[in-house]
Design a protein around this nucleic acid. Structure first.
Length: 589
RNA sequence: CGGGAUGUGGCGCAGUUUGGUAGCGUACUUCGCUUGGGACGAAGGGGCCGCAGGUUCAAAUCCUGUCAUCCCGACCA
């Protein structure tokens, strides 16, 4: 490719509306152009990167025994009503009507379609297992798209779905995919960590995410991990052992105490001179639910979480615990409405008849003689114990213990007891065991050797193609621009003649360029009449992995060779420079 | 959903307070000159100032509405 013909316009400045470095760089270096919020055109350089990522995925998926197909981006609502997700998917699902007033939606994912596809074609155990995938657009109408390609509304995803007759077969495929994914990301030049995770809107039981670890807020997930035994999990799923499982507030008598305007945990700890871990904290949430089977609205429900004062609620866990679709902290007015008191003093006291669901986090199990709100203005109890709970406080008089707390750095690994670390991660892939979550409601059945029918046991496996490319930029860049891993760079190398008025330079650059092309290197010849500085800046910004500079040194028979990721500039003969790049490129396959 | 800010050639911005028919940088075109880290000079092309109403002799500027974008927040008692 000749740079003079390449459809790219680099910008002198970063765009004003970008926050994440990958977003800034991809716009400035001419890879993407925004069309609408969270919707981008992929320009020729970007398209080459995406093609490379896609091809790596294809090769490894095919090698792992999966077959590629292609499913529609626009789908009928009917299918989603069958699976039950038309009601639960919420506003993220982009809905619309066609000219006949038939409800349709844009695909946020393809479980429904694949299930219907397989149902029509495969009906026998003899044909199973099978793993089918495609690389397709997805559209999710996110509340707040941000960070460019990292969280767009429209994006490209590889999603694979496997169908089995047994859990063992699913387990084997799950493992097979985990290995394929590790290979895929490695070939994309990315180190990833496979972590346990919540299965979210997709559903199912077992799931893992593949994270690219980063140290900025664009990593939207917190990952807890153990260096000793390798345990690692998304914060929405992570569990830990507390460092102080039992805590004693030291108040040996149950007392109702006046606590005027002492509201926060911090203030209470100071007021009573106890640790925050000796205070039983109450947090009120409002949970909302999907419409029931008849399409009737299910009313919102207040949920009170009792948790140890030094711990925080993990909202995803809480959502799962109560089966809610969405959950949010209650506002002051709601606190008064449901509990009859004001924030700062609430608790479960006298709540048995209040239609408030009360959940106790596991973190409180070992507490005794603690401080807890009295559910009356400006009053707390001290020296409270779980045996003090009465029928009028809780239905049944007994606490319901669940894990709904967020792990904290330094808490201990449940597997080996070592203290846990935390880091940020960008989720580039995930794998799920779906079981019969879709096949059952959609009545997708196979016939076994005895002629009996069963719902398929399913797995699904996704990789964000556009996000993977953006994650690579996020991970590999410097002050001058992108530093692409060679595997997914739009081109492998650029040849820069310094002075286009110097015929010898131009001629040699052309020769080197042709030689690279002939040896299978994807090269760009920067034949523009601009000054060298412009070409160097662009080369760094765009991030070509290798650069050969043809300048004054040709008098000595030498050109300059530079790898984007290294600072060194080597003076080599043209043959040696070409050979270095050819060797690097052929080592890819 | 709440709060704040911003919408002016492809990109980055000024002009709005005090209404007078649009400007700077960059990018683009042409010419000259220059050619090792975003040179210089000259001459050009491109915007009904987000959109819709209103006030006015006159609106980028004032008023009303609307849309869009960005940031923050969404209550841990």
């Amino acid at each position: 490719m000749r740079a003079s013909k390449l459809f790219v316009q680099t910008l002198r400045e970063f765009p004003n509306d970008a926050e994440a470095m990958s977003h800034k760089l991809l716009v400035r270096a001419g890879y993407i152009k925004k069309l609408a919020n969270g919707v981008y055109s992929y320009l020729p350089l970007m398209q080459r990167v995406l093609t490379k990522v896609s091809n790596i995925i294809r090769q490894e998926m095919n090698a792992a025994g999966a077959q590629e197909l292609l499913m529609p981006f626009v789908q009928p609502a009917e299918l989603w009503q069958k699976s039950g997700r038309w009601q639960v998917y919420g506003k993220e699902l982009m809905r619309m009507k066609d000219r006949h007033e038939v409800e349709m939606c844009l695909a946020p994912t393809h479980e429904e379609v694949i299930t219907s596809v397989v149902d029509g074609i495969f009906g026998s155990y003899k044909q199973l297992p099978v793993n089918l995938y495609h690389i397709q657009l997805k559209f999710r109408d996110e509340i707040r798209p941000r960070f460019g390609l990292l969280r767009g509304r429209e994006f490209i995803m590889k999603d694979a779905y496997s169908f089995h007759t047994s859990q063992e077969s699913l387990d084997a495929e799950y493992e097979n995919m985990a290995q394929a994914y590790t290979k895929i990301f490695k070939r994309c030049g990315l180190e990833t960590k496979m972590v346990q995770s919540d299965s979210g809107a997709i559903g199912g039981s077992v799931s893992h995410e593949f994270m690219v670890l980063v140290d900025t807020s664009v990593g939207e997930n917190n990952v807890f991990y153990c260096e000793k035994c390798g345990y690692s999990a998304n914060s929405n799923h992570a569990v830990s052992k507390l460092n102080d499982e039992t805590t004693d507030g030291g108040f040996n008598e149950l007392k109702l105490v006046d606590t005027p305007d002492v509201r926060t945990i911090e203030e209470l700890a100071k007021f009573f001179n106890v640790g925050e871990n000796c205070i039983l904290k109450a947090v009120l949430y409002i949970a909302s639910f999907a419409d029931d089977a008849k399409g009737e609205k299910v009313p919102d429900m207040p949920v009170m979480v009792m948790i140890r004062g030094d711990k925080e609620v993990e909202e995803t866990k809480l959502m799962n615990a109560v089966g809610a679709l969405e959950i949010r902290p209650a506002v002051d007015v709601e606190v008064k409405e449901y509990l009859g008191t004001e924030p700062g003093f609430i608790s479960f006291h006298g709540c048995a008849d209040k239609n408030v669901r009360v959940i106790f986090d596991n973190s409180v199990r070992g507490m005794k003689n603690f401080v807890v709100g009295a559910n009356q203005p400006h009053k707390h109890y001290t020296g409270y114990n779980f045996s003090d709970i009465k029928e009028e406080d809780l239905k049944g008089g007994k606490p319901e213990f669940v894990d709904v707390s967020l792990v904290k750095k330094g808490e201990r690994c449940v597997d080996c007891g070592e203290s846990l670390n935390v880091t940020r991660g960008i989720e580039v892939g995930n794998i799920f065991q779906l079981g019969t979550k879709y096949s059952k409601p959609m009545n997708a059945l196979y016939t076994d050797e005895n002629g009996k029918t069963h719902p398929y046991i399913m797995g699904c496996y996704g990789i964000g193609v556009t996000r993977t490319a953006a994650a690579a930029v996020e991970r590999y860049h410097d002050d001058f621009g992108i530093i692409w891993p060679l595997e997914i760079a739009p081109y492998h190398a650029v040849v820069v003649p310094v002075n286009t008025n110097d015929e010898a330079q131009v001629k040699l650059a052309e020769e080197i360029y042709q030689k690279l092309l002939n040896k299978g290197v994807e090269a760009v010849l920067d034949d523009r009449a601009d000054r060298a500085g412009v070409k160097f800046k662009d080369a760094d910004l765009i991030g070509y992995p290798y650069r050969i500079t043809v300048g004054k040194t040709i008098a000595e028979g030498l050109v300059e060779f530079k790898a984007r990721k290294d600072a060194d500039v080597l003076k080599l003969s043209p043959e040696d420079a070409v050979e270095k790049i050819v060797n690097a490129v052929s080592a890819l396959k």
